[in-house]
Amino acid sequence: MVTLAISSAWLLRANDGAVLYEAYHWVTRPLQPGISREEQFESSYILELQQRIVELEYQNRTLQTLAAYEETAAPGGTRAAVIGRAADHWWQHAILNRGSRSGVAVGHIVTGPGGLVGRVVAVSPSTARVLLISDPTSRVGAKVSRSRSMGVVRGQSNNRVVMEFFEKTPDVKAGDVIVTSSFSRLFPRDIPIGRIESIDLTKSPAPEAVIQLSSPLAILEWATIYPFEPQETVDLPVIPGAAPDIMPEDRP
C-alpha cells in the first residue's frame, strides 16, 4: 500500500504532475473563456466598435483643442486651473491658480466647460477662491430658457441644484435649459446652468425643480474667469428680482 502511494506520487512527480494539470483543466472547463461561433461574431463586432471609438476619440480630441483655443481667445477671460477644493466639508469652494496679479477680483464670474461654475469670493496675489453654485449658501437668479419663467437656483452640495420658481404655476417641463436671468445682480445674464431633471409643482411655498448642472463641478480641472461688476457691493447674495426696489435702504 505504502509502496503504491509512494510510487504513484513518484510517477506524478516524474512527469511534472501532468495528470493533475489535465484534471485541473477538465474541472475548470466551464470557467475557461472559450470561443463559440456566436461569440466569434460578437467579438469581431466589438472590435469594430472599439475601432470606431478610437476614431471618435481622436476627433473629440481635435475638437477639444479647438474649443480650448476658442475659449482662450474669448475677450476678457482668464484661463485658470483648479488647484484645490474647500478646506472644509461644509463649503463648496474651488481654488484657482490665478489671482489679483492676473487681474482677478472679488465678484468675477467663473465658467467652465458646461456653463456657470461660480463667483470669486476671495483673491490672493496668485490664487482665487470660488464659491461654486453647488454651495448651499449660493443663490443665482435663473430663468427657463424656453418659457422665461423666473426663479432662484440654490446649491445642494452635489451635482444637482434646486430651482425655486417665483410663479405658482411656472411653464416648465423636464429637459428645459436653465440660464442665468437678467435680474441677477451677481451674475451676467444668459450663462447656461443646466437642465431640469424633475419638477415638484406641489412644493410649498414655491414650486421647485431639480436641475442637473451641466458643468461637472466635482471633476473640474480648468475654468475661465470673466470680469464682472456685481450690481451691488454687498457680498451677501440676495434673492434677485424678489424685491428690487427696497434694496438701497436695507443694504449698507
Binding site: H89, W90, P136, T137, R139, R154, Q156, S157, L236, P237, V238
Partner: peptide, 21 residues
Amino acid sequence: DSLYPSLGKIWLYHQRIALSS
C-alpha cells in the same frame, strides 16, 4: 433671511459628512 437650507437637509448632510470625515 438665512442662506442655509432647511434643518432636515442640514442634518442629512451632517450625517454624510460626519461619517466620511
